[in-house]
């Protein structure tokens, strides 16, 4: 039984804060995966947490609270996505994948697992220029052309380095996934 869930159920605000602090950022990322809009994702995630708190009496401590949280967030995001007008080709793609074909369960989500440390390690391992390109894109939010300008390299090189970075991260993740699989196999119950 999940002690934290029991405490939240009984109205322990400290336990709830702990829960919030642990999952707020991953949940924002998870929500943003459907909406591709950080502001909206943030709003939805806050609403989800408020909903969990307000309905805390209905929490079932024998069911993982985290999976429950991600499930509610997924429903809320998909509702939001559904209501979105197709203003851009981008929204069209998200709708195509997530609304037209509902094939994705929370259990498959990497974001619902705790991968952050692995990601940090993986990024740390990237070769220098590759890392620089990746960070300019993901942290500073620069466009490929801007990165090319800053680093005085061609757009083609930027693209190659980005691919390289993502390939390496994918590889790290796949190792992690294999590890999970082994754990599951060793502890079937």
């Amino acid at each position: 039984m999940d002690q934290l869930a029991v405490r939240i159920k009984l109205g322990d605000i400290q336990a709830f804060e702990l829960f919030f602090r642990k999952y707020y950022v991953p949940l924002c990322g998870f929500t943003n995966k459907f909406l591709n809009d950080p502001e909206q994702s943030k709003e939805i995630v806050q609403e989800v947490f408020i909903k969990v708190w307000e309905n805390r009496k209905d929490i079932d401590p024998d069911y993982p609270l985290k999976a429950f949280l991600f499930k509610i967030a997924q429903n809320a995001s998909l509702n939001k996505l559904q209501r979105k007008k197709v203003e851009s080709k981008y929204i069209e793609i998200y709708k195509l994948v997530y609304i037209d074909h509902k094939e994705f369960s929370v259990h498959e989500s990497l974001l619902a697992r705790e991968l952050e440390d692995n990601i940090a390690t993986a990024i740390g391992k990237l070769p220098c220029e590759c890392k620089r390109v990746f960070e300019l894109s993901r942290i500073e939010g620069l466009k490929y052309s801007e990165i090319a300008n800053v680093l005085n390299i061609s757009i083609k090189t930027v693209e190659t380095q980005m691919s390289k970075a993502l390939r390496s991260l994918r590889l790290e993740l796949s190792e992690y996934l294999t590890f999970i699989l082994i754990v599951v196999l060793l502890n079937p119950f």
């Binding site: 995966k33 990497l110 991968l115 990024i123 942290i139």
Partner: peptide, 17 residues
């Protein structure tokens, strides 16, 4: 997911806990 996960690592400005 990979794309979002790397964004979490960088803790984008907009997600201030």
């Amino acid at each position: 997911e990979l794309w979002q996960e790397t964004a979490l690592y960088t803790r984008l400005e907009s997600y201030k806990t």
